[in-house]
């Protein structure tokens, strides 16, 4: 398998607090990697460092062998190839659903409006929102907004997709519709890096699970193995928090 995204010896500090320490990671094309860990372990920061929203202190991030972070002069070019969907609904509130989807392709990739609209409609249809194309974000439910955010990221045809707890702010009954879209993407062999708290979803979608603790990857394993017999005590304790016992 050919490696798409490579992280080498990446470290990140906020003032004196070490958030990420010596992260090494290689992700293959079409691989779905899920990152789990308790809150504050650095999962979100890891994603943000990958597409250069945060500067890193040491190491580097490579996409197709080219440096993304740190100090890439073509950062915007690399970001085109790394799509990201955030936890909070980050749609542009002043644009309709369709306009949200076509803004970046038209401005950044200079694609024609006709071409962009065609693809947007195809993708919106796929996530079941073609009819809402002229609605504004605030007329949509949280789950619908997240599906649009995914479409917007897909419009750039990124090589890697980053999902930062995209269901964490949703009502429980809306989680499913968003996760189904992501599952669909996995079937299309999209390369994805997913941070989530939904363990059953992680189990279902992941080719590989990373367990992050205190800014370090302490487990990198097959999902079946991770969920049935985690190697470390920390991971065992983490997984136990999801079980209820009387």
């Amino acid at each position: 398998m050919e490696s798409v995204l490579k992280i080498e010896h990446m470290s990140k500090k906020f003032d004196d607090l070490i958030v990420l320490e010596d992260i090494n990671l290689s992700i293959d094309k079409g691989e779905v990697v899920v990152i789990v860990g308790s809150s504050g372990c650095g999962k979100s920061t890891l994603l943000r460092c990958i597409n250069g929203l945060e500067d890193i202190d040491e190491g580097q991030v490579l996409l197709d062998g080219e440096t993304v972070n740190p100090g890439n002069r073509n950062l915007t070019k690399s970001r085109e190839k790394i799509g990201m969907v955030f936890q909070s609904y980050d749609l542009f509130p002043h644009k309709t659903i369709l306009e949200n989807a076509i803004l970046a392709p038209m401005k950044v990739q200079k694609r024609s409006r006709k071409d962009a609209v065609e693809e947007a409609m195809r993708l919106l249809d796929r996530v079941g929102l073609a009819e809402r194309k002229d609605s504004y974000p605030r007329q949509l439910s949280g789950g619908q907004k997240q599906r649009v955010a995914i479409v917007r990221a897909l419009m750039m045809d990124p090589e890697v997709l980053l999902f930062d707890e995209v269901t964490a702010a949703l009502d429980p009954e809306m989680v499913r519709e968003v996760l189904d879209v992501i599952l669909d993407l996995a079937k299309q062999k999209r390369t994805m890096l997913i941070v989530t708290h939904e363990m059953s979803f992680a189990k279902a979608i992941a080719d590989r699970i990373l367990f992050l603790d205190d800014g370090r990857i302490i487990e990198d394993s097959d999902p079946k193995e991770f969920f049935t017999s985690p190697a470390t005590e920390r991971a065992k304790r983490f997984l136990r928090t999801f079980e209820y016992e009387k």
Binding site: T76, R79, I82, F86, D90, A104, A149, A153, M156
Partner: peptide, 11 residues
Amino acid sequence: IQTESALSLGM
């Protein structure tokens, strides 16, 4: 978040 999502789209 508006700035970040626009940047992550490559703008």
